[in-house]
Every structure is written in C-alpha cells, then in structure tokens.
C-alpha cells in the first residue's frame, strides 16, 4: 500500500518561451499511515510535487501511481485511485461554493457516487470530526462563518471523502495560534485514529518538527533531504540553512544553552523535553 513517483519530471508550458522544469527526476514512495512534511521555499517545486502525487498534474516524464494504478489514466480504476487521495489546498475556504455547510461537505462524497444515507453519515461524521456542531451549522451558509470555521468546513469537505492519503498545503496559513492548534489536533486525530497518511506542505519548521515522522526537503525541483525531522535538524543543519530553510526554535535554544556549557543530550526535539532536561541538569523538580 503506497503512493509512488518513479523518475518523475514535470515541465510547465513545454515548448513555449515560458517553459519551466519544476520537477527533475524525482523518485519517491509514501506508504499508507505515514506522516510526511514537505518543506521548501516558494518556487522550489513542492506544490508541483504534491499535485503530481494526487494526479492533478500528470508527469511530463516518469509515472505516478497508487498501489500500482497509474494516476494519469482515464480508466475507472485510475479515477477511483485519485478519489482515495484527498487534497486540502492553501486557503481552502476560498473554494467553498454551496448554499449550506451541509451541501458543501456533501459535494465530495456525492461525487464518489455514495447514496443519500452514506453521504449523510459522512457529512455528520466529518462535521463532528472538525468540531462543528451539526444542529447549529449544517443549515447555515458557509459564507456567514468566521475564517477559522470556514477553513474547518473546507477540511471537513475533504475528510468526508474518507481519503487514505490526505495532502494538506499550508493548513495553518493565516490562522492565529488558537485556530492553528485546533486544525492540527484534527489532522493528528486523522493520522492516529484512522491511519490516514498525511502529506503536509509547510513553511513552518516548528510544525514539521512537532508533527511529522518524515521530512522531505525540496530544492530546485529535487528532493535533497529525506529523513526523520529530529535527525534532519541535527545532521543537516548546514544544508538546510544553505537552501534558505531554518531549524526550529527549540534547536536554536538548545544550541545556545550548549554554547554556555550546559550539557544537554542531542535528541531534543520539543520544548517539553528541553525543559525537563534543563531541570534535570539543574536539579530542579
């Protein structure tokens, strides 16, 4: 069970003066149940990468598949495969269109060909999942909601499709810390309880460090780093800085403390561990 890119290259507007090779010979496998963060600066090719992963774009060279099914095909099988990969775009609330929250969330399940009962169950489930009370919100216009609520409706619309793989492009962009935490809590629940594979495009090293189990760094159309966040931030710091990325604050703080002679273990990946270690060193409770 995995999604695969084999020697994928992608060129925008080939044969025109605006031709641009956005992906260069990428091979990648993401297994069901993984949590992968994709990082890279704007224009690195990371958006093109995920759009090839879910069959929205078809590789110029090479091929993209899900469990062996070529995603670029026109067959029913290929269509089914694409339906198993959900995608939440950046600012997904800008894609809401229906008159009610209910109808908008039901759009995806209906397109999958589910009947009324199944769709209804999916909508209720998805709304519960993103923490929107059915009675209160189902009949309301999505456009009367706050920004954070609209984003949750949009995410629910994708979750209701029960994807095996969920791609999220900058899910926390433009949200304040409160709404951000709520969105990530939902994503983590999908990952942990439903075993949905999560592929998250992000600019935030903090988010990558905190949530992902695997991290891909895209630079100039290639994947230059592929590893566990904890290891990447420790071992590849130089390389990350060189390509304009950063390391999370907690690594910087730990380094600053080490510079002053505080002996801390290498594997400090979050604030809690750091605090516990400092306390231990200083003999505090």
């Amino acid at each position: 069970m995995s999604m695969k890119l084999e020697h994928v290259s992608y060129t925008y507007m080939p044969g025109t003066p605006y031709e641009k090779e956005a992906l260069k010979d990428i091979s990648l496998e993401i297994k069901k149940g993984e949590f992968v963060a994709v990082i890279g600066h704007t224009g690195s090719g990371k958006s093109t990468l995920v759009q090839n992963l879910n069959g929205l774009l078809h590789p110029t060279k090479g091929n993209a598949s899900l469990d062996g099914v070529d995603l670029s095909g026109k067959s029913n099988e290929a269509k089914m495969a694409r339906g198993r990969i959900g995608m939440v775009f950046q600012y997904p609330e800008h894609q809401l269109f229906a008159e009610t929250v209910y109808e908008d969330i039901a759009f995806g399940p209906q397109n999958l060909g589910l009947n009324y009962e199944e769709t209804d169950a999916r909508v209720k489930d998805a709304m519960k999942f993103v923490g929107l009370d059915f009675e209160t919100y189902a009949g309301r216009s999505p456009f009367s909601l706050s920004g954070g609520q609209m984003r949750r409706v949009a995410i629910a619309g994708v979750v209701a499709m029960n994807p095996d793989y969920l791609i999220l492009d900058e899910p926390s962009a433009g949200l304040d810390p409160g709404s951000r935490d709520a969105v990530f809590a939902e994503v983590m629940e999908l990952y942990k309880k439903r075993g949905t594979a999560i592929i998250m495009v992000t600019h935030s090293m903090e988010d990558a460090a905190q949530f992902a189990k695997r991290m891909l760094v895209v630079y100039d159309g290639r994947i230059i780093i592929d590893g566990k966040p904890g290891e990447v931030f420790l071992k590849e710091k130089e390389q990350l800085l060189k390509v304009g990325m950063d390391v999370p604050e907690v690594y910087k703080l730990a380094d600053a403390l080490r510079d002053k002679g505080l002996r801390l273990p290498k594997e400090i990946t979050d604030a809690k561990t750091l605090l516990a270690e400092i306390k231990r060193r200083k003999g505090l409770r």
């Binding site: 604050e249 703080l253 600053a256 403390l257 002053k260 002679g261 505080l262």
Partner: peptide, 8 residues
C-alpha cells in the same frame, strides 16, 4: 535564546 543562555 541568548538572554536565557547567558543566565546559565
């Protein structure tokens, strides 16, 4: 970070 480190 530097201020905290300095305290150590």
């Amino acid at each position: 970070n530097e201020e905290l480190a300095a305290a150590f």
